[in-house]
């Protein structure tokens, strides 16, 4: 018998893990494929807006999500999905290692830190180029680092790194920061942070690890200088990494997956939920809610394909003509 999943969920943040729990509770054969667990939520120091819990660390909250999924014996695969293609009525999900067949797909891979797009960045990722000060910061104790970006997250990272590193360069393309005034003021007072305005990073250099960066003035690119350092912390915002989905589902001009209110994409059988979609608010509780919705919609889709249909019984989702039975026999 061919091994075919009812649903493959891409991503394991709030949306993906909630989808997984809802899918498994509908007896769907479920596989979650993700590069990591917990998404951006797992990196949040404190979550104070998850209903029913006054205060919890993002990591602990996401660990609870995962534990709930594990109780339902949901299968996980930690690889990167490269593409999704149609195969008859089903889909083939290809990762960097394997291929899986599924009847439906839920896209819920959230947002990814934006790359700088400069020479050397790709080669030195994980070798001095990092996108998460909270994760990798302590590895740079007593070293010299640059934080690149002008938003709240960049300033918070610079402040955090100033406690660990010997010297922090904060690089901004202009002389303005898109951050809270109180943060800007705070950072300017810290002795080992050198705020470098009109400083655009042009290249990251290094053989096996980061050794230096080339910085230019965007007003006059002939003025550039090289700074010796050990680490580059990229804080250039987040984006939906959806280039690989072009032609598979419709995307908006920000690259987000276009969905309707029922989490359906432009491609029947492919659903999407959470921060990677065009949903207006990027919030844990909203992503989770959308994840639940996507799973219920995927269930409905799979059951309908198998010849059943759901009675509108507001949530119990029993099939009335044995569609569920047929689904299991395939």
């Amino acid at each position: 018998m061919e091994n075919i999943y009812d649903v493959i969920i891409v991503g394991a943040g709030p949306a993906g893990l909630t989808s997984a729990v809802y899918s498994a509770r509908r007896q769907m054969k479920t596989l979650v494929i993700a590069k990591s667990l917990g998404g951006q939520a797992a990196l949040a120091n404190e979550v104070e807006n998850w209903p029913g819990i006054e205060n919890i660390s993002g990591f602990e909250l996401m660990n609870n999500f995962k534990a709930q999924a594990d109780k339902l014996k949901i299968e996980f695969n930690f690889n990167e999905v490269l593409n999704i293609s149609k195969s008859g009525d089903d889909f083939v999900v290809k990762t960097n290692k394997d291929e899986f067949k599924t009847k439906s797909v839920i896209l819920s891979f959230g947002l990814t830190p934006r790359d700088l797009g400069v020479p050397g960045e790709e080669k030195l990722k994980g070798r001095g180029v990092t996108y998460c000060a909270i994760c990798d910061g302590p590895l740079y104790k007593g070293k010299t680092v640059a934080v690149v970006g002008g938003g709240n997250s960049a300033l918070e990272s610079a402040e955090y790194m100033s406690k660990l590193a010997k010297q922090v360069y904060l690089l901004s393309n202009s002389d303005k920061f898109g951050a809270d005034p109180i943060l800007i003021e705070g950072v300017q007072k810290i002795e080992n942070i050198e705020v470098m305005c009109f400083s655009q990073i042009k290249e990251i250099k290094g053989e096996n690890k980061v050794e230096s960066i080339v910085v230019a003035d965007p007003r006059d690119e002939s003025k550039n200088k090289e700074i010796k350092l050990d680490g580059v912390f990229v804080e250039a915002g987040h984006q939906a990494k959806t280039g690989w989905l072009k032609g598979t589902v419709d995307l908006n001009d920000k690259g987000e997956i276009v969905t309707n209110r029922d989490c359906e994409t432009s491609s029947p059988g492919i659903f999407a939920a959470g921060d990677c979609t065009d949903t207006i608010y990027k919030q844990i509780v909203i992503a989770s809610g959308e994840g639940a919705k996507a799973a219920l919609q995927a269930y409905k889709y799979v059951v309908a394909k198998a010849g059943g249909y759901m009675k509108p019984d507001w949530g119990k989702c029993k099939t009335v003509n044995g569609g569920e039975e047929k689904m299991k026999l395939q």
């Binding site: 994980g126 070798r127 990092t130 994760c135 990798d136 590895l139 096996n208 690890k209 680490g231």
Partner: peptide, 10 residues
């Protein structure tokens, strides 16, 4: 040891 094996991300 961490330095020797160039651990820069965990």
């Amino acid at each position: 040891t961490a330095q020797k094996f160039g651990i820069m991300s965990i």
